[in-house]
Design a protein around this nucleic acid. Structure first.
Lengths: 154, 154
DNA sequence: AAGCTTTATTTTAATACTAAAGTATTTTAC
DNA sequence: GTAAAATACTTTAGTATTAAAATAAAGCTT
């Protein structure tokens, strides 16, 4: 017999705090580097992937977006010279995205800004409190929600 | 001396879980009522405001969006007959939005869907665990983030 | 009371995202 | 070995959102 009111309140708090923090993190990234959080996410994934880069489909999965979105966000990063696009020689359908040196430099700067923002926001939480929060977050089970209509939520 | 790695991990977990849950909640609302979560939010605010409705500016503040966004989302709700728009007789600049009977009916149905989704997702958390989570969320202090660049985040 | 300033909202242009349709290439099944 | 099916990605049309410019009404100032 779960407490419905408390569940709804918890969800609202979770949503509003996450939104608020996302906004200030995004603002800091834009103000200091002129790049949005979604481009930062792409750069992070490609930076981590290294020289071999990632196929469009793999990027889509890691970022949990659609293929169309991946095409568009990378297109702008390519225009700005932060990412390059290669073809897979074995399979003509496949596009491989690789971060450039310039992109890697930008990513490192952005990662630093990002870290500072997060550290500021979480400054009042102790280590055990952060672990406790992660533990509680893990208990939220998205897969239980109206599976009748649910789309693929990995 | 905050643990930077743990803070970053906690933030990533927070972001990804919140996004995932938001997606399934939105999917359920769209599947059952054909209306997105952002329209639901407007209906919720107007339903709560009752017969007097809310001025555009007040709606903007409650939803933490911009005035332009409010204008557009309400425009579609008006087209569908869920909301009506009045003028303030005392001040010609002011627009007042009021939920219609049809809108109130829709809202009640949607609120039910929404509650079921949230209860499903939070089913594994006890009452004290939910309170603990809300308490931890409260400690995240958005106002500490790079105030140098920060925009107004109420 | 005419003009400047402020306030309240709307419009416009742009980013981010999705779903669905389209394109190109590969694989499978005869 | 070719036609159909599957795969990988891109394009297009539409929603959600913001920032900045535009509009319109009210309030001040002299």
């Amino acid at each position: 017999m779960i407490n419905e009111q408390e569940a709804l309140r918890t969800w609202l708090d979770l949503l509003s705090k996450t939104n608020a923090l996302k906004k200030v993190v995004d603002n800091a990234l834009r103000a200091e580097h002129g790049v949005s959080i979604s481009r930062f996410d792409v750069l992070a994934a490609l930076h981590r992937a290294g020289e071999d880069g990632l196929r469009a489909g793999a990027l889509t999965q890691r970022l949990k977006v659609t293929d169309g979105n991946t095409t568009q966000v990378t297109a702008r990063l390519i225009e700005d010279g932060f990412v390059k696009r290669r073809k897979d020689p074995k399979d003509g359908r496949v596009a491989i995205y690789v971060i450039t040196k310039k992109g890697a430099r930008l990513f490192n700067d952005m990662a630093n800004t990002n870290k500072m923002s997060v550290v500021d926001a979480f400054g009042a939480l102790s280590d055990p409190q952060m672990r406790s929060m992660r533990n509680l977050l893990q208990k939220i089970d998205v897969s239980r929600v109206s599976s009748m209509y649910e789309k693929d939520v990995a």
